[in-house]
């Protein structure tokens, strides 16, 4: 048995005074400790909430601004540009050819973005390198065909059709994925169904709508 345990059982028989380091009763030390704790907490809290996201995500601008609201009013609903092909696959962000159905070599509007679009891409016959906010990792399979029949685009993508400008695209420096699919809120608090696109969110909705969260292969490949 150890020495200390002996003491524990026999009651303390020797002076503990010699073992202590402090010489006088020192409440000041305690007070300083509390202050140190509070300061350290505040520093950690602020750097975690303010600094960390800045370090983790790099900000990227779209090639030029895109006015969704304008296009909706001119061209029609989402499926005027984003649609499902005959075999059920999703067209995603339209290719230049789709844009050219309406746009021509002369700018349609008076914005600078339209000029960029026409000069840089239409005239050069180059695809626009859009940054896709909702792009999922490689291992994810998502069937738009299975969802668009009974789910509004807004449920997952938010009211993007009402926006006039393209947001800054934030890319996770470690994974290379868009911040949209992880969620903007650093605490993981979700206010809208479109706040993030994580597996938990898919599973939550599936559980509600189909009674089962789904098996791995339903969404993975």
């Amino acid at each position: 048995m150890s020495e200390i345990e002996n003491k524990a059982e026999n009651g303390s028989t020797e002076s503990a005074g010699e073992c202590t380091s402090g010489d006088t009763k020192d409440d000041k030390g305690l007070g300083l400790g509390v202050i140190f704790f509070i300061v350290a907490f505040v520093v950690c809290f602020l750097s975690g909430t303010l600094l960390f996201p800045k370090l983790l995500y790099s900000k990227k601008e779209q090639p030029f601004n895109f006015d969704h609201e304008l296009h909706v009013s001119e061209a029609g609903d989402c499926d005027a540009c984003h649609s499902v092909r005959e075999d059920g696959s999703f067209t995603g962000i339209p290719k230049l050819a789709v844009c050219l159905d309406c746009h021509a070599e002369d700018p349609l509007g008076e914005t600078e973005d339209e000029v960029v679009f026409v000069e840089e891409y239409v005239n050069k016959e180059k695809e626009v390198p859009w940054l896709v906010y909702a792009r999922q990792p490689d291992c994810v399979f998502f069937s738009h065909a299975a969802h668009t029949t009974n789910t509004d685009c807004k449920v997952c993508h938010g009211p993007i059709g009402e926006s006039n400008s393209s947001r800054v695209y934030e890319e996770n420096r470690l994974t290379g994925y868009s911040r949209d699919i992880w969620g903007k809120n650093i605490f993981g608090i979700k206010k809208h169904s479109w706040d993030r696109m994580k597996m938990d969110d898919c599973a939550e909705c599936h559980k509600k709508e189909t009674g089962h969260q789904g098996y791995c292969f339903q969404c993975h490949k």
Binding site: S12, S15, A16, G17, T20, G22, D23, T24, K25, D26, G29, L30
Partner: peptide
């Protein structure tokens, strides 16, 4: 530890 500083705990 804090309480110890002045007195010893016999």
């Amino acid at each position: 530890t804090i309480n110890d500083s002045g007195e010893s705990h016999h």
